[in-house]
Every structure is written in structure tokens, then in C-alpha cells.
Simulated scan of single mutants.
Amino acid sequence: MLIAITRLPEKAGRDAALCAEFGHECYTVSPLRAELIEDAIARFVAEANQGAFDCIFFTSALPAEVIAPKLSLPDGVRSVAIGPQTARTLARHGIEAETLPSFYSADFAPYLGEWLAGRRVGIPRAAVPNPGLLEAIRSAGGEACEYPSYHLVPSGEALDTGRADAVLFTSASSFREARWTRRPGQVVAAIGRVTAAAMEEIPPDVVGDGSLAGTLAALNRWTEEESTHA
């Protein structure tokens, strides 16, 4: 299949290579663009390098790409990536990060558990509220230090999805802001349950596990089942 994947261009990373591993081709469509908040990024980097945090939670590949090259973290600081692409981005810049087992920010506090008590967590992320994450850290006895590092701004452009066999939405925001028309027979996929929950208008045929690899695997299983029933 040819898959249109909703991404910030800066986050496309290994999308093409990963799709090829699953027998597909892909291209990026961008219903959103990122505007960096430079002063917040500089403040976070300065505080992180001074040892202000016991743990840093990278919730996407974009802040990892922008911030990691500027970090010189003291020993003992834990780095946690929300998913494998973010972890790979950090690794390219010399930061070995743990990866959440299920790729959702809601799983961050349960993953760290009792370790969070008395610890400060630095979170450079999009300027999109996530009160559940902050409250979960506080409930575990930790201190959540959030740094809105970029704005997500609707591109306002009609997406080039008509030639794609499948359209894969990677976030709830990308679906809500997308200007596109589903053509007959086109497969629609959500990268995970949070994105799928936002897609009531066009329920997805395929729902992944929160990662691109898991979504591609689910797409292949769905395709096999459809061909069996045809």
C-alpha cells in the first residue's frame, strides 16, 4: 500500500524505512506545523544541565531532536522516551533512554511507580494541556515541571491524500485539524486508542498500539482478514 502519514515533517524520521519493512510505501502529509518556543527551550536546557531534574520525559521526537544535542546531563538522571522513534532520536544524540512499554503518556507514572516519590520530572513538550499526566506524577509523590517547547499550528492546507491507499493519523490533533476527503475504498488508520477515540466522524478501520510499527502490523493483519472474507 501507499500510505499517507500525518506527521510534522521534523518527526517523519524512519517512517519510510519502517513502512518498507512491512511491505508498504509512505509519504508525509502535515495538517499541523511546529513553532518552537525558544525561550522555554533555552530555560529547560539550562536547568536540566544544572541538575534540576531527576528524570526527563520526552513525549515526542520533536523536542528530543531539538533539545538532546544541547544537553549535558549529570550522572543519574533518567531519560524516558514515549516510544521507539523518540528513543532512537535521543540515541543519535548520545542519550540512552528507557521506552514506555505501551507508548502512551498516561503510562508514564505507572511505569516509574514508587520511584517518582520525591523526584522532579522535566517535561519538554508541545503547548497542549495534559493535566492527566501532571496529576498522575503529583499523585505518585513527584513534582512535574512542564516546559511548553513548541506550538502546534494548523497548516490550513488541503492534504494530498487522494492518491494514498491508506491514511494513517498519528494524533488526535492531526485528525481534528486535517482538511481531506476520504475516497471510496481508502483505508483509515489510527496510531492508537487515543487517536481513535477522536475519530468518531470517520471511525478507523485499523487501530494500532501507539507506535508506527504496531499500526503497520495491525494494518497487515486487517488486510489479510479482508482478503480472506472477500
Rank of each mutant, 00 (worst) to 15 (best):
T161P: 11
Y147A: 08
L168G: 03
F175Y: 14
V194D: 15
V153W: 06
I191Q: 09
E177V: 12
R163E: 13
V194R: 14
E146F: 12
A144H: 03
G156H: 00
A178E: 08
E157K: 00
V167K: 02
P148Q: 07
T161S: 04
L152A: 07
V188P: 13
W180N: 02
D160E: 13
V188T: 14
E143H: 01
W180E: 03
A190C: 11
S149N: 12
E157G: 00
A172S: 14
A172L: 09
D165F: 02
R163M: 04
P154H: 01
T170P: 13
L168H: 02
E146I: 15
V188A: 10
G156I: 00
T195F: 10
R179N: 07
G162V: 11
T161W: 03
G192R: 08
G156T: 00
G156Q: 00
S171L: 01
I191V: 15
A144S: 06
R163V: 08
L159D: 05
G192I: 12
V167D: 07
T170A: 14
F169D: 06
S174C: 12
V187H: 03
S174K: 04
T181H: 14
V153T: 12
I191D: 12
V188C: 13
V187I: 15
L168A: 02
P184I: 04
E157Y: 00
W180Y: 13
V167L: 09
A144M: 05
V187E: 10
R179M: 11
R176S: 12
C145D: 03
A190G: 11
V194T: 15
T161A: 06
A190E: 13
E143N: 00
D165T: 07
T170L: 13
P154K: 00
T161Q: 04
A164K: 09
A196V: 06
H151D: 15
W180C: 08
S155Y: 00
